Amino acid sequence: MKKCLSILMTLLLMFSILPTGFAEKAPVKKTVTYQIPLSVRNISKENTYPNSTQNLPHLQPSELTKKLINSSKVKIENPDLIRMLNESSINSSPFAIGYRAIVYLGQWPLNYESTETSPNWEYQKINTNYFDNRGGNVPYQIHYVQEVQKIVRGGLTAKVANAEDVKKMMLHKAMEKTKLPLSFETIIGGGTKNDHVYNIPANRLGYLYAFCPGVNEKGKVTYGEVYLMLKGSRKFIVVKNVTSQGIGAWIPVQDYVSFSFAASERPR
């Protein structure tokens, strides 16, 4: 009896320890935060050109579309394909025994998997403010004034099929990861200002450089031929000839400017 009681106590002790051991070995999910440097400032209120906000709401699939997407062995995230399926209507009949049909929906970029998202705060130079204080005896103050309107465009780093669909999926993933206002085109209007002051010492030349930040997005896009299969009352999607391709893109950050100030004895 004492021997059985001893074994029982040992087992209880083991079970009380095991969950703690397993919890310690559980993987910790790492989250990446994109800290905006102090040299980068939001100019959305000062920008003389009103950029249109890129709203990319997550398209909600209908009940039918959900069933069709879940029936596919390949993940489907393309919002344009989801929209087309949402607009489709398929009536089922309880007497459709033996009915069979195959509908070819075309070749589509089905999903995009992001592998790297890297901000470049000096993606493209947009302006230089300059003042020669070599003849002065006291510091001279300058601030940012955009001399001419500047259009900054991003784009894909390689040619791919259905490029616009791919850009939408890449933009959506990059915005989700960075929480930054991204757009493949942004405009900084002439006359845009920022009140932050930079001091040019006496006997120095002052240069205030302005840059449009951008995000370098890299990943993999998956293509496939999409077929809608109808068998009796069953409806499902089959994807054939699946291929994957690596792709990258530069996406400007909208209504943000990165500044770099330099004072020198000689012209640059």
Rank of each mutant, 00 (worst) to 15 (best):
G232I: 06
G154M: 07
Y209W: 13
W250E: 10
S233R: 09
V197F: 11
T178D: 08
V152S: 13
T178E: 03
G154V: 10
E164W: 06
V166F: 07
V166N: 07
G246H: 13
R204Q: 13
D255R: 00
K168P: 05
H196T: 15
T192C: 09
V238P: 10
G219C: 07
G214V: 07
A202C: 03
L230E: 15
I187R: 06
A174C: 10
V239L: 09
V238S: 10
P213E: 11
K159A: 08
K177H: 09
K218A: 14
L208T: 00
V160H: 06
S183T: 09
K179G: 15
G246K: 14
Y256C: 08
S244R: 00
G206T: 06
Y207N: 03
A210R: 00
L182N: 03
Y223E: 01
Q245K: 15
L208G: 01
K159G: 01
E225Q: 05
N241M: 07
P181F: 03
V152G: 09
N216R: 14
K167M: 10
Y227D: 07
V197D: 12
A249P: 03
K220N: 12
V221R: 00
I247E: 02
V215L: 07
K179C: 05
E164G: 03
G191W: 05
I237L: 15
V160E: 00
N216H: 10
A249Q: 01
P252S: 12
R204K: 15
K235T: 14
L182Q: 01
G206V: 08
K218M: 15
R153K: 14
M175V: 05
W250G: 13
K159N: 12
P213N: 11
Y209Q: 14
G154A: 09
V221E: 02
F184V: 11
A163S: 14
I237T: 05
M175I: 04
A163M: 14
K218C: 10
S233P: 08
P213F: 14
G248S: 10
K150L: 00
I187A: 04
L182F: 01
V253Y: 02
L182E: 02
N203Y: 04
T186E: 09
K159M: 14
I200P: 06
V238Y: 04
Q245H: 14
S183Y: 09
F236A: 10
A158P: 00
K159V: 08
T243E: 10
V239W: 01
Y227N: 08
I251N: 02
Y209T: 07
I247W: 00
H196V: 15
N199G: 08
T157Q: 01
G155H: 00
Y223A: 04
Q245V: 10
E176K: 13
G224T: 02
L230Q: 09
N216Q: 13
Q254D: 07
A158V: 15
A174Y: 02
A174M: 00
K235L: 12
N194G: 11
R153G: 11
N199W: 06
K168I: 14
I237F: 01
P181A: 05
V152P: 05
A163R: 05
